[in-house]
Design a binder for these strands. Sequence first.
DNA 1: ATGAACAATTGATATAGGTCAATTCTAATA
DNA 2: TATTAGAATTGACCTATATCAATTGTTCAT
Lengths: 245, 245
Amino acid sequence: MIRFTQIMPVSLHTINREMHERCALCRIRSYSFCRALGEGKLKGFTSISAEKIYTDKQNIFLQNENSDSLYNITEGNIKIYQLLSDGRIQIIGFLYPGDFFGSYSKKKYNYSAESIGKTKVCIFKKDLLDAYLEKNMELAKELLNMTSHELMLAQDRIGVLGKLNANERMAKFVINISQQRSRIGWQDNPVSLPMTRQDIADYLGLTLETVSREITKLKTSKLIKVLNSKQIYLLDKARLLSLCH
Amino acid sequence: MIRFTQIMPVSLHTINREMHERCALCRIRSYSFCRALGEGKLKGFTSISAEKIYTDKQNIFLQNENSDSLYNITEGNIKIYQLLSDGRIQIIGFLYPGDFFGSYSKKKYNYSAESIGKTKVCIFKKDLLDAYLEKNMELAKELLNMTSHELMLAQDRIGVLGKLNANERMAKFVINISQQRSRIGWQDNPVSLPMTRQDIADYLGLTLETVSREITKLKTSKLIKVLNSKQIYLLDKARLLSLCH
DNA sequence: ATGAACAATTGATATAGGTCAATTCTAATA
DNA sequence: TATTAGAATTGACCTATATCAATTGTTCAT
């Protein structure tokens, strides 16, 4: 089992504090508000969310199941992926605290979601959320903003997979992780890669051997320093950035 | 200049009729309502949109420009694409009547948009739309639904570019176009490809030579019939579908 | 109808990244 | 501490697709 507390150079306390500042519907309300909302403790509001805890490698939901919930990560990481009929996997994304996943619309999930390490999520049932949105335009707008943001990220990934070579994909990958960490208030340089090489490969549309070779290439060209297989230090962000275009 | 009236086996009249039934905020209001709204002719509503007409290959906006509008196609097609610093192009999508593009949030456009053939769009200024959303929750929800749908499509494309080979990408491409046409009420079988081979290549993350070869492969294996370079007939949808996984 | 300009096809060759296999590293358990 | 299983690296070779180049097809203006 992968434990973030082992590989991340920040204390669990720090992480939790960060969470309180930005979690769930973070840009609107404080985490405590969201939580209270979830537990139905705020008078005037009904309960629209429930919290759930997962251990490593548990499925939150599977592709093609009927979708009825939107999830928000409050702790840990999630990977979302699509499975082809012949067993090939495409990882759509690695998600961080504050990220949403699942489906707002009531159809089918178009990817599966699995926890990486111990993970807490807030679950918003579509019906309840829907009813709540009626009363809270600010929330609706925020949800729209977040979905637009996700869309932008997905479109970026289309660019990566369509046009960048293995070198550039790898560079973009570490840069993106670094930026993502910084965005949620974690230190952005010694960057941890909690996922396996196979996972990275399935994310970047490469094989694990190519990922491994590209990492050593970045190492030998002094762009990164490999602290251990799950933790790397970015030595030359400028050059890495220029590789991503 | 590419003219749809030449390559599509439906009359312009038919197209326009279809447009009236589904355009702009089609799933909520009729096109005429939307148009009236745009022109400020409906009492009780302020004007939130303006119509604009483009000829072939005109830029609607460029990547990294400040974004202030959301666009809806009412006639014609749009391609949206990202440009890498070294000139490589990744086409994010080919859009059809009824599709939205641009940006809801007021930041920068993360792709450029260009007309294919004569194209009409409805322009929704972010500020006006935003104000209007306040008064119209139905619209806000619909916008959220549409954005979620787009996100789903983008995630599908991540799967295509990450895991499918040239054969499978090509098969998926023609199947998708067929389904898209059917979705907006056009005949779904002789399928027209109004874009160039280079455009298809830039969309699928291949080269134009590979696209050309794959088309001839589909032809020789009796999966499609090439009516002319811009129009193909799907002979065996079942096998094409199985190629897409 | 003719020619110019561009789009698409086809062929020959090169190469990035995949595949298969052997080796080394790491972490967990006895 | 030794043992083992899984993860990561490295090497040798192969294949799908890119690249470069020549040919054919199509559209539009004259």
